[in-house]
Amino acid sequence: MELVLSLAIGVLVSSGVWLLLRPRTYQVIIGLALLGYAVNLFIFSMGRHLIINAPPVLEGGDPIDPMTFTDPLPQALVLTAIVIGFATTALFLVVLLAARGLSGTDHVDGREPER
């Protein structure tokens, strides 16, 4: 499980970084989204341990053993990160469109490279 998840993070990061370095704005936005998945998974996996089939919520006020639960802290962090990630994607998309409208190109530099 750990192996699969870490490889998944690696693949997502590789794809994201590759796209981040590409010249077209749309590639960059997809790249950032993929990087976002990777980072969220990474933070999520930084919790105490990964458990399958652990109860996600407490049961009333019964005393509990924290080790049998999933780690809630990284979850709280990632939850807001997902929403903020959406917001930044939206902002970037709009900047991208505005830049395309103003400059007439979708190159990240705002102009086509000289050939």
Binding site: S6, L7, W18, A38
Partner: peptide, 16 residues
């Protein structure tokens, strides 16, 4: 890109 991905994999695996 491959280096970054591999690095993240190694760190993530070590942490997990």
């Amino acid at each position: 890109a491959v280096l970054c991905g591999a690095g993240m994999s190694v760190i993530a695996y070590a942490m997990m």
